[in-house]
Design a protein around this nucleic acid. Structure first.
Length: 264
DNA sequence: AACGTACCCTGCCGGC
DNA sequence: TGCCGGCAGGGTACGT
């Protein structure tokens, strides 16, 4: 579900609600998961950061509450049938909703943030000055994997998932099955430009709420970027540019959608 | 080292 | 109507 845009929309929605508030109690509804939260209790939330698809609640005493939403996780202002963790703040309660239980939560001292798997190995944010066309081209050239698999690798660039990787590849006119080492420099440049653009547009639209509705903003509103998707989930529908039917294939065991005419 | 596959969970949808 | 297989935005573990 949640890729960078959905995580960022969540961060922006929660920030004014939690900044400066003390976490009084954390109540668990799932006995076997998300348990590493005890040290967050009693601490004030100073701010919320984001790194790739990780939410980073900055707590008093240089602690972090790190949350990964997994495939179906999200914060809600009201209890749901799939509430797994309840965060009782001094003036409101937040509910961590996660039907598939793929989400993860860690409370750790800031100095030990690298104990969270992947967090310290993430590649640059798409807007980071370190994310240059040259950098992307070099990472592509170093691999024989399909270009889409490389874009999904969080150590290459942080935050892309299945939806926005397909959308960025469409905008760049690059077929997802192409091998990284065969990508030309001009194509890498187009991809480099398309990635932050599609993510920014998705953030502005409030993220993508697909058919299963599993992503919603904390206040239960949906996002609207699904209306602007060009290829993701649109097998058989006409390409918005040339009208050719969109195709679906499988890369790394996951669906990949592309226009066979616009993407070579 | 790099890559593919199975697996972790639950819910929903289409086909029969 | 009911059942069953397939599929779903994430990541990890393990095999080759």
């Amino acid at each position: 579900m949640p890729e960078l845009p959905e995580v960022e929309v969540t961060r922006r929605a929660l920030l004014p609600l939690v900044r400066g508030r003390r976490i009084e109690r954390i109540v668990h509804a799932d006995p076997g998961r998300y348990r590493d939260t005890a040290q967050a209790e009693g601490r004030r939330v100073l701010g919320i950061g984001r790194r790739g698809k990780f939410l980073l609640f900055e707590l008093e005493g240089a602690w972090l509450l790190v949350v990964h939403l997994g495939m179906s996780g999200g914060f809600r202002l009201a209890k749901t049938p799939h509430t797994r963790v309840v965060f009782e703040l001094e003036d409101r309660t937040l509910y961590f909703h996660d039907p598939r239980r793929f989400g993860r939560i860690w409370a750790i001292p800031e100095a030990e943030r690298c104990r969270v798997p992947l967090l310290c190995r993430l590649g640059p944010e798409p807007w980071d000055p370190a994310f240059t066309p040259e950098y992307l081209w070099r990472r592509l050239k170093a691999s024989r994997r399909p270009v889409k698999a490389i874009l999904l690798d969080q150590t290459v660039v942080a935050g892309l998932g299945n939806i926005y990787a397909d959308e960025a590849l469409f905008r760049a006119g690059v077929r997802p099955t192409r091998r990284g080492h065969r990508i030309r420099r001009a194509e890498a440049e187009r991809l480099h430009g398309a990635i932050p653009r599609v993510l920014e547009e998705a953030i502005q639209a409030g993220g993508s709420t697909l058919k299963d509705q599993s992503y919603r903003r904390p206040d239960d509103r949906i996002g609207y970027f699904q209306l602007k998707l060009s290829v993701y989930g649109r097998e058989g529908e006409p390409c918005p540019v040339c009208g050719t039917p969109i195709r679906r294939t499988v890369i790394q065991g996951r669906s990949a959608y592309y226009c066979p005419r616009c993407q070579r």
